[in-house]
Amino acid sequence: MKTNCSHQPDCLKLIQRILDKEASAEEEARFLANKDQCLPCQEGHELELALRKALKTSCHSKCPSSLLESIRSKISSIILLILLLIPLFCWFI
């Protein structure tokens, strides 16, 4: 196995595009075929996966229910306002 990858910057970009689902099927197949022979690419792939997993498990927050209620009531008052204003407007014309 290679312990040195001569085109690592390009490999890393490809790894990221593959994980972002933006690489073509050929690019992905080519990477997977070479991965077993290249240690830096294997480690790079594992690191990118680990980072995504860590972000998904750590950066979570739920919308507080008070916020949802507050938005709903604001929307209700807008609707009410529109319902009142439109007939008024028509009446003046």
């Binding site: 690191l47 860590a54 750590s58």
Partner: peptide, 14 residues
């Protein structure tokens, strides 16, 4: 290393 990231705390990631 991937293992280092796996060992990190959620607070460190955020």
């Amino acid at each position: 290393q991937a293992e280092t990231v796996n060992e990190m705390l959620g607070d460190e990631i955020t």
